[in-house]
Design a protein around this nucleic acid. Structure first.
Length: 566
RNA sequence: GCGCUCGUAGCUCAACUGGAUAGAGCAGCGGACUUCUAAUCCGCAGGUUGCAGGUUCAAGUCCUGCUGGGCGCGCCA
């Protein structure tokens, strides 16, 4: 069992920190090692400015003195001006990486906290569109990142199946619903009703009244026709969602609609009353949050007595806290809802629920379109399935052109097309808005998912074509010419940790791109098979296997399929 | 009006907790397939990091102001 805490470059970083902490007489965590910009400066660097005063030397003198006196196994220190640079002995690094990176435990930790991740959370009766993609992909990746680090993860899909929108839907169905149309394309038909509702509600006053009445019937808790209709819409919608989740290989431990918390809503309202935070305002029940620096109060009950988004989220949070006593509960929800989450946490804080700060909103930017914002209400949507289909179609064309003899062409085309879409999303920092651009989304060259998949497939191919695979024992000392690749691989565990801590899968994406680039350069310049040198071949197979395994694990965490041939 | 957020090469994005000469991909130009998959590799070109101040030994990164875009601001979710 490899040491789970010190793999790859972390092992060497730890040695440097230990030694420096002793010499500089400070705690180890104060020694923050930087990554030098230029590669020939080594793998780690310490700017000596902040330690100069205590040592009563100039930064340049201190760096020079430390470079002279430090003795660290497998590491050479050198001073460049006020910077102290550390270079890992290439042979030691090659031994370490070919050992660590070929294991299933590569990049794993045993951090063991209970983490809930709520993501995807589509609304029923509406198609999954590209906007849902980000939450789904990000959330699934964050869940897997945490799992890899040994956290106990609970995946939650908080389906939007409640709220006044369903009153609108029921009202629309009663006026214009057609059974045949519904059977042909359930979600398409429901969407059409929803769109028509919003178009006509302005002219027809009886429409909003019917919708309101329908939602009140739903919330009455009694078994009635409205409720039956709602249940039917829900089950058809869930079936549609599952198709997409299967294609994306996204899973949940808990699929709970907002309606699941229905029975807990009254308790939450009572609790708020008991905490004396509820007040009436204009007929509605609100929680004032000015004491928390939030000007907009949180609305808990409408003047008609129905619940709201915040009410249901409060009930869900309380229920989850009782059920799981989580260390963290992550909500992967768009940045446009930041105010809602700030309000909802502030309400918990006002009620002295001391777990309020374990709730964490993971905001992400919008997908925008050159033609303007998409609007479900106006029926302008781009279905997720259409995006996936087009990517898969293009992947199939490229396979036909580049590798017409490939077995399982349809399967691989699906993996490559879907992988391209997923990686495209996880390549960007989540906070930034992304402009949806077919040309970019459907690009398979350069910094893309297929590039990573291709590199993985090449490694598999080389290993497959070798006679005996990686030998039991090999001479890692022959891998000094693979140093850039070894360094890139060595940073993999840290990338995983950093990506999870910052809730930013792009950190892993970027690390994988660097690894793949170094890998492609390596095997183009250095032939693995047929060199006639058995020792060299064994060592090179070991690093190809390290590369293969790192990409396999990394892509797996991101949710990008890793075919062995493409 | 108030709040949040973003502004880096023609385009899409990087840059670790403030650190050294701001890096990739795409597009453009020029090279490399008798050899493990050219979805690749090598090279050239491309920058006043939106603007102006401030803090610091050091600012793309922190602070202030301005500017431009996006989002949000009570009975939708």
């Amino acid at each position: 069992m490899p040491d789970l805490t010190l793999q790859g470059l972390d092992l060497f970083a730890d040695r440097i920190q230990t030694e420096l902490a002793a010499v500089l007489q400070c705690s180890k965590d104060r020694i923050a090692l930087d990554r030098p910009r230029a590669e020939d400066h080594g793998e780690f660097a310490l700017p000596c400015f902040r330690f100069a005063k205590a040592a009563k030397k100039s930064p340049v003198e201190l760096a020079g003195g430390l470079a002279e006196s430090l003795r660290i196994a497998d590491i050479t220190a050198s001073a460049v001006g006020p910077f102290l640079n550390f270079k890992i002995c290439p042979i030691a690094l090659a031994r370490r990486i070919t050992e660590d990176a070929r294991s299933d435990a590569w990049g794993k930790r045993a951090l063991g906290r209970k983490t809930l991740v709520e993501y995807s959370s589509p609304n029923i009766a509406k198609p999954m569109h590209v906007g849902h993609l980000r939450s789904t992909i990000l959330g699934a990746a964050l869940a897997r990142l945490h799992e890899h680090l040994g956290h106990e993860v609970v995946r939650i899909n908080h389906i939007g199946d409640w709220g006044s929108q369903f009153g609108k839907l029921v009202a629309g169905w009663r006026r214009w619903g057609e059974e045949n149309e519904f059977k042909k394309d359930p979600i398409g038909h429901l969407l059409a009703l929803y769109v028509r509702y919003h178009k006509e509600e302005k002219e027809d006053e009886t429409l909003p009244a019917d919708a309101k009445a329908a939602f009140q019937e739903l919330e009455s808790g009694q078994e009635n026709d409205t409720r039956k209709l709602w249940a039917r819409f829900t089950s058809f919608s869930l079936r549609e969602f599952d198709k997409v989740y299967q294609r994306l290989d996204v899973k949940f431990d808990l699929v709970r609609g907002e309606s699941w918390y229905e029975s807990k809503l009254a308790d939450v309202v009572d609790w708020l009353k008991k905490c004396q935070v509820l007040q009436e305002d204009d007929g509605a029940q609100i929680v004032d949050l000015s004491s928390e620096g939030i000007k907009t109060p949180c609305l808990v009950l409408t003047s008609h007595g129905t619940t709201l988004y915040a009410t249901r989220d409060l009930a869900a949070a309380c229920s989850r806290w009782e059920e799981f006593s989580f260390d963290r509960c992550l909500y992967v929800v768009g940045a446009e809802q930041t105010l809602h989450f700030n309000q909802f946490k502030a309400v918990l804080k006002r009620c002295n629920a001391d777990w309020w700060n374990r709730i964490e909103h993971i905001p992400f930017g919008l997908i925008r379109f050159a033609e303007g914002k998409l609007s479900t209400r106006e029926g302008r949507v781009l279905r997720l399935e259409e995006v996936l289909d087009r990517a898969v179609e293009l992947a199939a064309e490229i396979i036909q052109e580049k590798n017409p003899d490939l077995k399982n062409k349809e399967v691989v085309a699906e993996q490559v097309g879907v992988g391209a879409i997923i990686f495209h999303d996880l390549k960007h920092q989540r906070q930034k808005d992304v402009l949806f651009n077919w040309k970019e989304v459907l690009s398979f060259e350069g910094d893309t998912g297929p590039y990573l998949q291709y590199t993985h497939a090449r490694c598999c191919s080389i290993l497959r074509k070798s006679e005996n695979g990686v030998p039991e024992s090999f001479d890692a000392d022959l891998l000094t010419d693979a140093n850039p690749l070894l360094v890139a691989l060595g940073r993999f565990p840290d990338a995983i940790l950093d990506a999870a801590e910052k809730r930013e899968p792009t950190i892993l994406s970027q690390a994988l791109l660097k690894i793949a680039a170094a890998g492609n350069s390596f095997y183009r310049e250095h032939r693995v098979l047929g060199t006639g040198d058995e020792q060299l071949e064994g060592a090179r197979l070991a690093i190809i296997d390290s590369l293969r395994n790192t990409l396999r694990i990394g892509l797996g965490i991101l949710g990008v399929p890793a075919p062995e041939e493409m």
